[in-house]
Write a protein that binds this DNA or RNA. Sequence first.
DNA 1: CTGAAAGCGCTTACAG
DNA 2: CTGAAAGCGCTTACAG
Lengths: 349, 349
Amino acid sequence: MPPARPGPNLSRIATSLGVSVATVSNALSGKGRVSEQLAERIRDHATELGYVPSQAGRALRTGRSGVIGLVLPDIANPLFPKLAQAIEFAATSAGYGVLIADSRGNVSAQTEAINRLIERGVEGLVIVPRRATRISAASCPVAVIDTASTPGNTVAADHWQGGRDIAAHLGELGHKRILIIGNNPESNVQNDRAGGIRSGLRHDMQASILWVERLERDHGGGCALGLAEKVREGFTAFAALSDLQALRALTELQRDGITVPDMASVTGFDDLIWSAVVTPGLTTVAMDMATIADIAISSLMKTIQASGSREGVLVSADTDRVPMQLIVRQSSGLVDPTTTSLSNGELLI
Amino acid sequence: MPPARPGPNLSRIATSLGVSVATVSNALSGKGRVSEQLAERIRDHATELGYVPSQAGRALRTGRSGVIGLVLPDIANPLFPKLAQAIEFAATSAGYGVLIADSRGNVSAQTEAINRLIERGVEGLVIVPRRATRISAASCPVAVIDTASTPGNTVAADHWQGGRDIAAHLGELGHKRILIIGNNPESNVQNDRAGGIRSGLRHDMQASILWVERLERDHGGGCALGLAEKVREGFTAFAALSDLQALRALTELQRDGITVPDMASVTGFDDLIWSAVVTPGLTTVAMDMATIADIAISSLMKTIQASGSREGVLVSADTDRVPMQLIVRQSSGLVDPTTTSLSNGELLI
DNA sequence: CTGAAAGCGCTTACAG
DNA sequence: CTGAAAGCGCTTACAG
């Protein structure tokens, strides 16, 4: 005999009230086929007993688990907290739970992670793919979060426009020679951002690009970027393609006696946690994670509802580009004290 | 009539092979009540058909969902990636999925988050509680990750010992006057760390403490910490209670022309992502997240197995203190190039 | 407005 | 070694 749940179930409520389980079910789901009077009695009794509906029973009957999966290439990525928070919030608002999976390691780990989630019965998947991975249709609806320049149905920040904003900002400050600092030349995101910067330069501005990964291949991990030398060569602005590289640039410049922003400006991307904390505060461009998450989740919901949750199609929304927002702080020479405060009273540690 | 799943189920495999569902179930679960020959035929046919077992059916029958919940006070916390990654890995290894929930906001949000997870049928919960929150027994086993000084059954890093390691390290470097920089005087974690530092000072060393939150209450968010002044007063080492404050200290010192580590040393806690990236690299103390996660998950598994997954008790392990590990980088004046490399080729951006 | 009944897919005693 | 059957808790046509 199957193990009985300790908590009360519909049947217990029903017999205890002398009504049928069907009526209890209808009353609790509020479908309105029960007289309001009886419905209220049933609801009261249910709360009194501490009734918690069984997801398993409901899922088995309806074919919907009420859960989606979030697959990340590397949870340790500093962008992840914002993404996970936004997805969790959007999914919860839509009445769904979020199972996480880390596809750390190779591409096959990504496939395994996806399969694990599908075995757990997720109704849909939000995937941030590993580099150079195309998600072949899984056996459930999938929303991909990636660069706009990745082909396929994706939602992404408008990295290109973010780059243009950076270029415009640096132009206003009078910079002529910009050094773009990227990590990985294979990254679609970084190439979009760099392209945006280049396309936003005024005619009298010019930019070079430094790929840190290549530098480190030649000189070892953690090597100096040699930015003081670049300053001597005439570069006055360092536009990193992520806040992590921006932080590296900022601290290296300061260590070498180049004051920021007096002698050089530094900008980043993503508004990661430390951007508002460092001195001088880091000028950066933020993704609108809430909107990105909303689009991903709502496309997913639409597809789930339409397909009866079982089609293995990518979400049918066209590629969405969500605007990025420039956040000016002191590292680029403009001081706006209102953007530097960080309410970190909520930080765990 | 309930909606049929599109994929094959046990019954389809059974009829297609002319055997009973019981036999298929036994063959696939490998309980060994089926002749090896038949079992193999069944397994082959199942993979051929792309059979994926229904979690819902299994959960309903066995009373186990195969899922645990992870409740975090704030997913945006920079420590979260490491924690989530470690928990996800430990849970996956134990055959469990991980549902996440953010108890952002007030304490009642934490209660709601816990209830949502319980409604989704989690068999256990890993909770990083909000400050000053005691988790009253939920209706499933709970493992709490917090400071060792929080009463109750918890697993935590040995923050006190980490503090002692910092003090010993600074002592070896010859520092006499230490400024401890904390964020929040209410935090058990921070108080443990500060206490550890104080207890590890040699007789000829002395420490003062600066609470940033109080400073900002008086001078506004993002205000300067005034560390250059402290250097003039004779402080030579700044021991932050988290890497975020350490980064703030480091950049403020550098901006004010105090070279690190020549004129002052800086240390942090947690080995967050940027510690290895800044110049000079940040000396810090790392939690052993893998071990913490292993202990939390295995206690949970033990309690789940013992109690039939339904008792509302905290895990019965005594409070576990997991050692922290000192990571020496240049910010404290010792240069060890082997610890400065960061393989960030896997970073998304 | 309310109830009896079927059935989602699975596992596990129990019989043979 | 294999099969028939019960039952986990729910929802939803269908009858009354």
